[in-house]
């Protein structure tokens, strides 16, 4: 895909990490910055609540990425309801679309934010699709 800058990496990200409430703000790394540095695009999960149709729409998008050579991960927050990922609803939606559940990384608000940021960066850097799949799609 000449002249195209896409990073081929996508992260499912809870609303609480994109728009951290004041109580969490100081205890979490700047996740958007870490994602940008590691060339991960964002798929934002909605805030807590019932969002069945929206989660189905998000699952459709994840399926499209997962089936076409993109590395998809999920980042959760320990202590948030459903880790912020709506996992109990989202996981069956993904399975129904033939998508293997993406690897999950949980941030720990009780740990130092700098160290958590580094741990997240290491996780993001360390994940990709097998080389054969990259060669197949990323041209």
């Amino acid at each position: 895909m000449s002249g195209d800058a896409r990073g081929w990496h996508v992260a499912l990200v809870p609303d609480a990490l994109i728009n951290p409430p004041e109580a969490l703000r100081a205890s979490l790394p700047d996740v958007l910055q870490v994602l940008e540095d590691r060339k991960y695009g964002v798929l934002q999960l909605p805030p807590p609540g019932t969002h069945g149709p929206l989660l189905a729409v998000i699952a459709d998008q994840v399926a499209e990425y997962a089936h076409h050579g993109y590395a998809v991960v999920a980042i959760g927050v320990r202590g948030e309801p459903g880790e912020g990922l709506h996992w109990r609803r989202l996981a069956p939606l993904l399975r129904h679309r033939g998508v293997a559940l993406p690897p999950r990384h949980l941030l720990r608000p009780e740990a130092p934010a700098t160290a958590e940021g580094q741990r997240l960066a290491n996780f993001l850097t360390g994940y990709d699709l097998p080389a054969e799949q990259q060669r197949r799609w990323r041209v």
Partner: peptide, 30 residues
């Protein structure tokens, strides 16, 4: 927030369109 959504050959940034994200966050937008 995700340049992977762009049509083939249409992604100008690797991940986020950072100037937009920075401008919105600087003014306090969720």
């Amino acid at each position: 927030l995700n340049q992977n959504a762009k049509v083939c050959q249409g992604a100008r940034y690797p991940a986020l369109v950072s100037p937009v994200v920075q401008a919105l966050r600087a003014r306090g937008y969720l």
